[in-house]
Amino acid sequence: MTDYTVELNNLIKFFGRRLIFNGINFSFSSRNVYGISGPNGSGKSTLVKIIADLISPTGGKVVHKYGERTIEPEDLHNYIGFVSPYLFLYDEFTAEENLIHSANIRGIKFNKERSDYLLGELNLFDRRKDLVRGYSSGMKQRLKFIFALLHEPQLIILDEPTSNLDNSGKEIVYKIIKEESIKNLIVIASNEDSDLHLCTEVIELEKFKKQTNK
């Protein structure tokens, strides 16, 4: 089984003059669940966005490796599954259409079998042909998991994975996290104790607030 690793090398992020974090050095590897925690505004979402190459750090770099091969930024999206409250799917499409379009845009064949399996696992199979516009926030959150897992990514980033979910939704998500962690790398940004309970190691972002001369 090929290992997926992510190395954070001296990451620094400023928003304007405000320091978010400074000097994060860390290494993530497959078959582990890592947590990122910290109070509101500590930069949890910012850090996961930087890991997913959605935004750039002010300093330092993130290196993604699949086996020995370093992944180029333009290919990174094929290896990452991302779930977050600020990720939105297309309201004017049905759940299934969203998944078909996402597979086509990725340039992979739509795997109906996997899609149906995930829709079933997350209790959305019966609503797969309904427009996302009519979904509740919890259903949208569950659909985001299917969107993130459909292409079988090696790195799964979950920013507040259980937001908007009821207890049964949370149980399903925890089951999926445990299953996926057998072969993949999972990073969870959250403050929920129950989410962080699943993690083998947790990064406390408050420790990286120290300002150095920039």
Partner: peptide
């Protein structure tokens, strides 16, 4: 406006997005 910019980020490379 729909907040789907990030969704596109996660689906394809910038050159694919511009071409599309």
């Amino acid at each position: 406006e729909r907040g789907t910019t990030m969704t596109l980020h996660l689906l394809a490379s910038p050159s694919t997005i511009f071409s599309g």
